[in-house]
Simulated scan of single mutants.
Amino acid sequence: MDDTKLFECARPEFITRLNVTRIEDQGMLQVNLQTESQHLTLHGYEALADSVSDMLMAELIVISEVLNTGQEFGTIRIECWVDESYSVYWCDSANFEQT
């Protein structure tokens, strides 16, 4: 597996804006995350929806593109550290911008 880090947010930098939009009848979600210096748009399904509350509470979030996994879908890994627990979620695509 090859990882490319797309986004990292650790306290004291917080997510300043998070929007979730359902963009297709089949249930695809679009999640927009923004910090003071970064903007990231994620696309995915149920696992992405499950990650939203952890992203809001996390001390550390790392979002990476993972290649050569053999997975057909879900190549974007979302890692969240909340209190002393670690969670990982997967989504289908990500677009990153420095602001």
Rank of each mutant, 00 (worst) to 15 (best):
E72S: 08
I15G: 02
A47Y: 03
P12Y: 01
L29P: 06
L56Y: 00
Y89R: 04
E59A: 11
N32W: 11
T35M: 11
V66C: 03
V66T: 05
D2G: 11
L18Q: 11
M1C: 08
M28T: 15
G44C: 01
I15E: 03
T21I: 09
E59L: 00
T75D: 10
L18D: 01
I61V: 10
I63S: 00
Q26G: 15
V88N: 03
C80I: 12
E84G: 07
E97H: 11
V31N: 08
I78F: 05
A10N: 08
E24Q: 15
C9Y: 01
M1V: 14
C80V: 02
V62G: 01
D50Y: 13
E59D: 14
M55G: 04
L60Y: 07
D54Y: 14
L67T: 11
A47R: 13
I78N: 07
C9T: 09
A10I: 00
T69A: 00
I63A: 03
D83C: 04
R11T: 06
L42H: 08
V82I: 10
A94N: 06
M55K: 01
S51W: 01
G27I: 13
E36A: 15
E36M: 11
S51R: 02
M55W: 03
Q30L: 14
D92R: 03
F7A: 10
C9H: 01
N95V: 11
C9D: 04
T99R: 13
I78P: 02
Q30E: 15
